[in-house]
Amino acid sequence: MGVMTQVLVLGGTGWLSGRIAERWRDAGARVTCVARGDRPAPEGTVLVRGDRDQGAYDALIGQHWDEVVDISSTARHVREAVAALGDRAGHWTYVSSMSVYDEDETIGLDETGRLLAPAQDGDEYDYGREKVAAEQAVRTLGERAFIVRPGLITGPGDPSDRFGYWAAAADRAGTGPILVPERGDRYVQVIDVDDLADFLVVDGRQGVVNANGDVHPFLDVLERIRALVGHTGELVEAPDAWLEEHGVRYWMGERSLPLWLPADMPGFTRRRNDGYRAAGGAVRSLDETIRRVLDDERARGVDRERRAGLSRSDELELIDALRGQGAHAR
Results as ranks from 00 to 15, higher is better:
residue 141 L to C: 07
residue 118 P to F: 06
residue 93 T to Y: 02
residue 71 I to L: 15
residue 26 D to R: 14
residue 329 A to W: 05
residue 270 R to Y: 04
residue 230 G to T: 09
residue 272 R to I: 01
residue 302 V to I: 11
residue 326 G to F: 08
residue 48 V to L: 13
residue 58 D to Q: 15
residue 274 D to W: 03
residue 108 G to M: 01
residue 152 L to V: 06
residue 142 G to P: 07
residue 315 E to P: 04
residue 246 H to L: 00
residue 308 A to W: 07
residue 124 E to V: 15
residue 28 G to Q: 11
residue 284 R to W: 06
residue 314 D to T: 15
residue 240 D to F: 09
residue 194 D to A: 00
residue 179 L to N: 04
residue 139 R to T: 11
residue 221 V to D: 12
residue 185 D to G: 02
residue 179 L to Y: 11
residue 192 D to I: 06
residue 172 R to M: 03
residue 88 R to Y: 10
residue 49 R to K: 15
residue 81 A to V: 02
residue 15 W to T: 11
residue 4 M to H: 11
residue 95 V to L: 04
residue 80 E to P: 04
residue 132 V to T: 09
residue 193 V to P: 01
residue 60 L to Q: 14
residue 264 D to S: 12
residue 150 P to Q: 06
residue 256 S to K: 08
residue 35 A to P: 15
residue 298 R to P: 14
residue 49 R to A: 15
residue 79 R to T: 12
residue 106 T to F: 09
residue 1 M to W: 11
residue 330 R to A: 02
residue 318 L to F: 07
residue 188 V to R: 01
residue 101 Y to C: 08
residue 78 V to F: 13
residue 173 A to C: 05
residue 251 W to A: 12
residue 137 A to P: 03
residue 63 Q to M: 14
residue 258 P to N: 03
residue 257 L to Y: 00
residue 94 Y to G: 11
residue 248 V to N: 05
residue 35 A to G: 15
residue 283 V to R: 11
residue 229 V to H: 02
residue 189 Q to L: 08
residue 52 R to S: 12
residue 97 S to L: 07
residue 67 E to W: 12
residue 163 F to N: 04
residue 26 D to K: 04
residue 67 E to P: 00
residue 239 P to L: 06
residue 144 R to H: 14
residue 299 A to E: 15
residue 192 D to W: 04
residue 59 A to Q: 13
residue 296 D to A: 09
residue 7 V to S: 13
residue 76 R to K: 10
residue 190 V to L: 08
residue 33 C to G: 08
residue 25 R to F: 09
residue 7 V to Y: 12
residue 263 A to Q: 11
residue 112 T to Q: 00
residue 244 E to C: 07
residue 173 A to L: 03
residue 65 W to A: 07
residue 256 S to D: 11
residue 239 P to W: 03
residue 288 E to K: 07
residue 116 L to K: 02
residue 97 S to F: 10
residue 135 E to H: 01
residue 328 H to E: 15
residue 280 G to V: 05
residue 324 G to K: 11
residue 213 G to W: 10
residue 95 V to K: 02
residue 41 A to V: 09
residue 187 Y to S: 14
residue 254 E to I: 04
residue 72 S to L: 13
residue 49 R to I: 08
residue 302 V to Q: 08
residue 303 D to W: 10
residue 315 E to N: 00
residue 141 L to Y: 08
residue 71 I to C: 15
residue 27 A to C: 07
residue 154 T to E: 13
residue 113 G to M: 01
residue 300 R to F: 06
residue 65 W to E: 10
residue 131 K to R: 13
residue 97 S to K: 04
residue 242 W to D: 00
residue 153 I to R: 09
residue 172 R to S: 02
residue 133 A to N: 02
residue 271 R to W: 07
residue 24 W to C: 11
residue 106 T to N: 05
residue 270 R to W: 03
residue 25 R to T: 07
residue 160 S to D: 10
residue 150 P to T: 09
residue 153 I to M: 12
residue 307 R to P: 03
residue 293 V to E: 12
residue 246 H to W: 01
residue 296 D to T: 02
residue 204 G to Q: 09
residue 315 E to Y: 00
residue 211 A to L: 10
residue 220 D to V: 12
residue 158 D to W: 13
residue 95 V to A: 00
residue 15 W to Y: 14
residue 260 W to L: 07
residue 126 D to E: 11
